[in-house]
């Protein structure tokens, strides 16, 4: 094992640890946005795809790279857009958005007729 891959292993383990610590704190409320967010972030394989598609190491490599670029871009563009769309929907009661039909203050008189 080279020194380089040892460092890479460090990076991986520490990143996974940070990920674990952060993600265990994400409330179940946001689990679906979390999935789409990590999906969008893992679209970072676009970075590898770009090099494969543009490095001119032969036609096979270019075409595989091209398809990879398409697939990863779908995830990046679609993933971030849909996460944003979802997160926009999560609103608190009376959270400043008018016209949502949600009443702004809790009802005061708890009358019970029966």
């Amino acid at each position: 094992m080279t020194a380089l891959s040892i460092i890479e292993l460090y990076v991986f383990v520490l990143a996974a640890f940070v990920g674990y610590q952060v993600i265990t704190r994400v409330p179940p409320l946001l689990h679906t946005p979390l999935m789409s967010a990590t999906n969008a972030i893992s679209g970072i394989s676009l970075v590898g795809s770009l090099v494969a598609a543009g490095s001119d190491h032969g036609q096979v490599s270019t075409i595989l790279g091209f398809i990879a670029v398409v697939a990863a871009t779908i995830n990046v563009v679609g993933g971030f857009l849909i996460t944003d769309r979802m997160l926009k929907m999560f609103k608190k009661r009376g959270g400043g958005d008018g016209g949502s039909g949600v009443e702004q203050k809790p009802p005061e008189l708890p009358r019970k007729k029966d």
């Binding site: 991986f12 940070v18 990920g19 993600i23 999935m35 990590t38 893992s42 590898g48």
Partner: peptide, 21 residues
Amino acid sequence: TGFAIGNNVLIIAGALDGASG
């Protein structure tokens, strides 16, 4: 992929995604 092509941002993003899943 990050390990294979020696790219740290791939390793980090992949690890985050893997941990999340």
